[in-house]
Amino acid sequence: MPEPTAPPAPEFALSARALTRRFGDFTAVDGIDLELRRGEIFGFLGPNGAGKTTTIRILCGILTPTSGTAHVLGYDVARDPEAVKRRIGYVSQQFGLYGDLSVDENVRFYADIYGATDRAYREHLLEHYGFKDKRRRLAGALSGGFKQRLALVCALTHKPKLVFLDEPTAGVDPVTRKELWDLFYSLTADGTTLFVTTHYMEEAERCDRVAFIFRGKLVLNDAPDKVKAHLGERDLFHVRCRYDPELVRRARELPGVETVNQFGTTLRLIVERGRLTPETLARALGNGELTAAHVYPTEPTMEDVFVNLTSRLAAEAEAQDAALDAAASRGLA
């Protein structure tokens, strides 16, 4: 197959326009627009089943979009998926390592598959990622953190300019996660773009930009510190109290309360702006012990935003579905 002539280096490592993928009646990805600048760490978030995996599969060239276009490193994923596959790196939550192969053998296998010829770079990677004295170790015998590092090395031998990291630190302890993120940052220093999916908010905050996908649609796409603004016209209250199911139930039923979330000995409430004050809230929840002194207004975290966004959107979608169902049954009658 002749090598397609490389298009001029585009401004964006990845750009997608109205990307859509349907499976029968189900629209898994619904008109997504994305732009990843070179060297950026892009966090892709969303609940399970929201369309994250489908989006990544399209962007990796293993699933064709139903409509819309996506260019990855300048190549059209639908027209030239092989060119895309050759140029990207991919590390999944499952880590495609062969447990009965040694560190060296795993790296060599993936390097050969990608046709990576730069042996010096391979050596450099192994050293930089801490495999100097572990190269003969079987991959299956490595600790979780080192398995992830090895997966990363395997995905990097061909010097990809864009790397997809699909929940790269799932099930990893915080210290190892920090070490992995140090490695991610060192990658971006070389101009590599990272596309990261995660369920960890603390990890999302490490990204340059985060996007949130819900039911196949992008509902938010911004820098982490600006995400909080997306809470919109809402107040956030922090109530100091032990978990009490009765209290939570009562809180949920208060007018204007959208999200109730218990963290240890604090209850976080997201409320429509101006509907409640600490005093009215304390009184409404009132079990006698609770006073306004236990209630503080507070700043939203990213988790607050996402949990609130998800539940609001789910409620809206449900209302919409119900309306459609009602319309349909009226139509039938």
Partner: peptide, 13 residues
């Protein structure tokens, strides 16, 4: 079974 298949399909193999 070893979940390496998923990895293989995103490579140019």
């Amino acid at each position: 079974e070893y979940k390496t298949f998923e990895q293989l399909i995103v490579t140019p193999v």
